[in-house]
Write a protein that binds this DNA or RNA. Sequence first.
DNA 1: CGGTATCCAAAGTGATACTG
DNA 2: CAGTATCACTTTGGATACCG
Lengths: 116, 116
Amino acid sequence: MPADLISAMRDECPLEAGLHIIGGRWKGAILYCLTGGSRRYNELRRLMPQVTQRMMTLQLRELEASGVVHREVFPSVPPCVEYSLTELGRSLEPALMSLRDWGERYQQMTSDRRQP
Amino acid sequence: MPADLISAMRDECPLEAGLHIIGGRWKGAILYCLTGGSRRYNELRRLMPQVTQRMMTLQLRELEASGVVHREVFPSVPPCVEYSLTELGRSLEPALMSLRDWGERYQQMTSDRRQP
DNA sequence: CGGTATCCAAAGTGATACTG
DNA sequence: CAGTATCACTTTGGATACCG
């Protein structure tokens, strides 16, 4: 199926639209880190050592393209790039926190099952 | 990377854990449909004509395995299978609605951009 | 420091045909 | 009605090497 049709379909359902923005492989974790304030590129990499450089860049660029993350380059030597949430990104926080809270309860439930 | 390590990482971040449950290709739309009450298999297919039979079944089974969707088979002729949210699934609704609301505002913003 | 480019393996997805 | 099986294709993601 063509990519534009997929987008069209996702555009129809607001929930799918929202999930499409935050649902990328590492986007949840990245957004989670950025709720604590702006972060430099390598700072994010240290916070998420599992994420390869390639993926970190890709996911950040997609979040930037979606308008939820702001990328600011300080032309210094050595270079410095800071990432932060845009206002639109910060408006995501209630939804993010709600899902995180649910995730916490879910984690507790499943760990209870392993140790009854 | 091994699948169990991926799970382990997702288990650490509650937000990632939550996204992992609802983030599948069609899971948002399916959950969205099921918030309206229980639905038969073909009823879901009619509500989401874009989703192939194969994917519908796969995604429903994953949601069932995650414990958020209940599958009930009525042994009649012709067969009847009803899907509904479990209590755990219903506890997801606030997060779902929050993300849907954000998605709605996002859709309005982007349509404003196309027609200023 | 903060990236790109390239290549390749693995996972995801659709189309199609078949079934109890 | 509600699936399963198989195959082909597309997409995703990691490893690695290199760059301004």
